[in-house]
Each structure stands twice: as structure tokens, then as C-alpha cells.
Nucleic acid binder design. Sequence first.
DNA 1: CGAATGCTTGACGACACTCAAATAACGTGG
DNA 2: CCACGTTATTTGAGTGTCGTCAAGCATTCG
Lengths: 199, 199
Amino acid sequence: MTVEIWTGSRTHLNEAAPLLTFSDGQEIYCAGDPVDRAFCVAFGTVRVYRMLTSGRRQILSFHMAGEWFGIERDRRRKFSAEAIGSSGILSVNASPGDKTVPLSSIFWALSSAQQQQLVVGRPSADERVAAFLLEMSARLGFHAFVLPMPRSDVADYLGLTIESISRAMTRLKRGKLIRLDGSRRIEILDMEALETICS
Amino acid sequence: MTVEIWTGSRTHLNEAAPLLTFSDGQEIYCAGDPVDRAFCVAFGTVRVYRMLTSGRRQILSFHMAGEWFGIERDRRRKFSAEAIGSSGILSVNASPGDKTVPLSSIFWALSSAQQQQLVVGRPSADERVAAFLLEMSARLGFHAFVLPMPRSDVADYLGLTIESISRAMTRLKRGKLIRLDGSRRIEILDMEALETICS
DNA sequence: CGAATGCTTGACGACACTCAAATAACGTGG
DNA sequence: CCACGTTATTTGAGTGTCGTCAAGCATTCG
């Protein structure tokens, strides 16, 4: 079994990849589904999560344009995926006949998973939120950006409550580290100070 | 550039892999090093971590016998790796001429990274410790096992202090969920209750 | 046996969570 | 375009949990 290592900067698919569109909150796949395909975000955002029986939700990752997701080791999915806002998703069949896979995207996924560990494994709420904002800024490529997800998603991603997120944001705002225009539009004013918080 | 997908259950190396032995705390690689090879644990345990300028340490992952580590996306390493106790490590050259890589190990690494997110992204200390013990038990294959790492490693892995780890352990012990023989030897008495804590 | 290290326990303060209310943002229909 | 209801977010007060500092205990090694 052979795999082409994919090193370019653009997605290269060896078969027609249908573009599916999803509305806000719509399910892309569900825990328990067979892992028979991978996905690539064309536009919009995706959250990968799982529900605990306690009713709490853990968000493992967000995926944005150009990023791959839905790659899992096991036969059946352990996690679920939903669109955040209106999103376009390329679905790539992963049947045995389909041997070409963007390998670098796997490395990226791994790197991304490690990245989140670094974000979540922090003790204080301010650190987590600062690290999260830096991560978002780096991924979106601008120091000013619009968060695609609501506070509740950020909370379930960082393992905090929406109130703690909000308070941390307010503290960062009062310290002139960021500027808020509404709750979603964020401008990083002092990148260095944010990085210092994250040590 | 082509890569053999590796689907067997045993490590298959296409060139002689020298077995290196490391003593407790000895460096295997260091942040900043070129990413020119991958590693596989023959025996012992490995911690992958990074230091923050504040002096705090974040442990990203532990690796045990048969597990691969040292696969990073970038040209230079962002993390460091050390042996925990006396450990044997297989070093596989990843030079351009060497094209065969155990791909499934990458999936495993990804899965492992996600696993840790699930462990760390929990709010309470008891949940994190319970999830950690379940993870260790599953990886080691027994309900009674010896933790290879000291409390300080567990703390830096879970984003807690050693005191919080200790208190959580004591609570689990008092609740008859686990039995402790010394600080390292652990027996899980009530697997179901532990799983319930983790929801 | 003694020293050093690692682990546990206690007291206390800081911070995050819970509950509650107020405010802001959003969407729909007039 | 505005008014309204709905949802999302912020803010406040009180409680619980975790981190910090300190001491005591256990284990290991020389």
C-alpha cells in the first residue's frame, strides 16, 4: 500500500471531491459512524467534539479553511463534528481503492493536536484565553480577526465556563492587550504581552 | 516521494535501527534540534515536554514500549524528550533517502494526542487523575500497574500541582476506587466508578 | 544510620464555578 | 427601518476548589 506524500500548499485530490454545505450546528459526522472518509474545510469552521454522559461537552479541535479533519485511527468514530456557521466541506472517500492521501495534513493534524494540549494544559484562565487568541490569530493570519465560534464553544474547548472566558477577555481588554468590537471581533493590540502571559 | 503504509502489529524497520540506552532523566533530543529521525521505545518510558520561560514545564506525552515518538511537523524540534528511568530507544534515521515510515504509528500518535486532550481538558483534579489512571491502565494492559513516572511528571502532564495529584489520589483511595502500595504501585479496584467520574 | 529525595497532609489565600441578574447583540415580522 | 422577542454575553455575589507555603512522613541510597 503506497501513499503520496503531499508537500504542496494547495489541496490535491485524486478524485472528484463533492462540496457539501452545512448550516450552523449541522452534523457532519457522529460518534459511532464508520470512518470511511476524511474531510477538508472549504469555507466556514468545524468543531470536533464529544459528549460526556454528564452532559458536558469537550471540544477537541476547531478546523478552518484548508484544514483536514475526520482522520481517526479506529474503525468507528469516537467523536462528532458539526459546522459552526454556514460551512463548505469537501468529502474525500477513503475506500481501500483510494490510496492518495495528503500525508502532510496528518502531520499538521498531529501538530495541531499538540498545540491544543499546550493551550489547555495551562493553569489560569487568562493564560488559556491568551494562548487561544494567539493560536487563532496565527491560524487566521491576522492580528485582527472575527472569532467564528460563540463563547460556549471556546469554553468547552478550553475547559472553562463562559463566564470565566468573558472575565478573562475583559481583563485582557482592560489591560489594553486586546480590543473588542462586539464579542466576536477581536484585535490583538499587544502581541508581545500576550506571548509573555503564555510564557 | 512514497511511503509504505505499515499495518502490521510489529515494528518493521527497513534499516538497522541501533538500540540506544538512556538513564533516568537523560536527554534524547532537545528543542531546537533538527528533526532528522524518529524514535521507538524498546523498554522504559519517555516524556516529551517543553519549558516555558516562566520555568514551568508542560509535558505533552508519555511514551511506552512499542510506541513511536519524535515525529514533528517542522524542520526543528519544538519539544524535548527525556528518558524516565532506564530506557532503550530505537532511533530511525529519517533522511531523505529513507522513505519507509510506519504510517499507522502516525495515526496512533494522533489518536494519542487527542486522548491526552480529553484527559487534560477536564475541570476537576479528580477527573483528570481518574482519566489519567484509566489511560495508563489501558496502555499498560493491566488493572494493577506501576506508574513509571514521579508525581511531578503527572502534575506537569495534567496541568496540576503535585499536591493536587496527591490529594486526588488520596480521595480515590479513600473512596475504594484504587489501592495504593507506595506511591507508584496502583491497583484499580473499581474501574466502573473511575469511568463514571470521567463521565 | 543519616541525609536526601519524594510524597502526603494541613492552613490559608486566590481564583474559577455556580447561580442570578443586567446588558448587549441578533433575528423576525410588521 | 424599527419594535419586539430571543439568544448571547457580561457582570455581580457567594461558594468551593486548587495553588502556595510549610511541615511531617516515607522511601531510597550511600
